[in-house]
Amino acid sequence: MQEAIIAEGLVKTFGDVRALDGVDLSVPTGTVLGLLGPNGAGKTTTVRVLTTLLRPDAGRAVVAGIDVLKHPNQVRRSIGLSGQFAAVDEYLTGRENLQMVGELYQMSARDSKARALELLEWFNLSDAADRPAKTYSGGMRRRLDLAAALVVRPPVMFMDEPTTGLDPRNRLALWEVIQKLVEDGTTLLLTTQYLEEADHLAHDIVVVDHGKVIARGTADQLKAQVGGERVEVVVQDRDLIGTASEVLRGYSRDGVAVDKHTRRLTIPVQGGAKLLAEVIRDLDARGIEIDDIGLRRPTLDDVFISLTGHHAEDADEDEQDTHASGGKSGSGGKTAAAVPAAGDSGKDAA
């Protein structure tokens, strides 16, 4: 079995909304696919179709070598699902939750018990094993949820925004677990809004927007596709972001990405160090104090903005004129770091 997950031409409409508009993807056995995209792009819908929770209107899906639409119950034996919200029973203890899941996977009571014990230990939940899950912290619940998804040591795992809302320490711990699973041969489809997470964990990346795949490749391939360098400026005074944006616009045809929250402005450039010096002089002439300035290679953030921004440019001509945004996202304000200009929309840096 070469591909652990195959999706072909998945279409799903909810009323007038085409949540999936012909999504194709495949994940080779033993690798991690990062599914990226803004809110409402179709990430979760894709996961729901592949995990048998939702029937697509059209298309085909094969998971662990089994047709998802024809034999959903056989697929369910081979998959684990861990979502954005901890799917555990709050009134059951950690141990009871895991045992219940084991028994519903049709494991014997004895095997379920033994496996629960093993998982509680692995996820550092032994001390809390006999407390109801509602007494757990957010990070503990998420660990319990992931443990529940791993009860049958499924060969194919789906994780829908597994680290959303976790603090950095818990996020790193979760990354470790994921890396361990992949070392052991698990195939993983991971959706995330954190680009560094995909950069860190995924072998391949698929970017979706409006229910369509708009890019795919390795992180390096995607970055190379965007190409060029970036000048990144952090201005000292929040009130001067607008002025700084105007200055920078003179150096880039592609617009300025602005993150008001961190007071960071980014433009794609060609011309390297010489141009950097010009930018510094120009900003200085306008009396704009800068905290930080530098030249850097594109990140996945830039990939994302250049990809999803393209759609928005068609839709939002007017705002583009005023603020020359690199990608005023019609994509909901949560697209991680760089939320582009379009200053007053109140959508910045959610």
Binding site: N73, Q74, Q106, M107, V152, R153, P155, D184, G185, T186
Partner: peptide
């Protein structure tokens, strides 16, 4: 589990 082969599901046949 320290093996590197593709894991086999522990779930018995339904």
């Amino acid at each position: 589990d320290t093996t590197t082969v593709v894991p086999k599901t522990l779930a018995p046949k339904t």
